[in-house]
């Protein structure tokens, strides 16, 4: 019974995941696309919970669904209405056909590789304890075995923050003289 319930939750989350991903790709308005991506991230968090990745699921909702997507929505609102044509409108162009073929090729490659090569290697999952994926055990791994990854991640975040500041201040510096010259004229 519990197994059946897991399958039901899995199919619900997987379906929501795929539908919202397609919605992100096909909505005309970027604002709706960003909202659909929040749904996608939330259903992925459900899948992470099924895989006993509790800490990653919480991080997904907090960091992705919260912080990153709020930043996206702010920028989209700041830029105003930037709707474009739906990619499916206006008949099949060579670009659309090529993109669909390339996407299908990636999909077929992965499925063929998994089906032919992986086969039986993948069907014996290990049993894991209750602490698997908890914040305590993930944190312990982060500070022991993967300390280098932890430090590198912090440097990446620092560089990205500096880059964001530089991009923002550069845009302002080049904007001001044009305003002054316009006022002088």
């Amino acid at each position: 019974m519990a197994n059946f319930l897991v399958w039901v939750v899995w199919f619900g989350a997987a379906f929501a995941c795929l539908v919202s991903a397609l919605a992100v790709v096909s909505f005309r308005n970027p604002f709706y696309s960003a909202l659909a991506l929040i749904g996608n991230l939330a259903s992925l968090a459900v899948l992470f919970l099924l895989l006993s990745g509790e800490f990653v699921a919480a991080g997904q909702v907090l960091v992705y669904g919260g912080a990153v997507m709020v930043m996206f929505l702010f920028v989209i609102a700041y830029l105003g209405d930037k709707s474009e044509e739906s990619p499916w409108s206006g008949g099949p162009s060579w670009q659309v056909v090529g993109a669909v073929l390339a996407g299908g090729a990636i999909l077929a490659e992965v499925i063929v590789v998994v089906g032919l090569k992986a086969g039986d290697f993948l069907s014996s999952p290990h049993h894991v304890g209750r602490a698997f994926g908890s914040p305590a055990s993930v944190g312990r791994l982060f500070l022991t075995d993967h300390l280098l990854a932890f430090e590198v991640t912090s440097i990446v975040l620092l560089v990205a923050a500096v880059g964001g500041v530089v991009l923002g201040s550069h845009a302002r510096r080049t904007e001001e003289p044009s305003l002054e010259s316009r006022a002088r004229a």
Binding site: A149, T153, L167, H170
Partner: peptide, 27 residues
């Protein structure tokens, strides 16, 4: 749990990518 560690690192990389990408778009 090593894969989960890597997933968290990917999340951090994605966040920094969004910061730089959105900075460019705003510029």
């Amino acid at each position: 749990e090593d894969g989960q560690i890597f997933a968290i690192s990917v999340m951090a990389v994605a966040a920094s990518e969004v910061v730089v990408g959105l900075g460019l778009i705003v510029a």
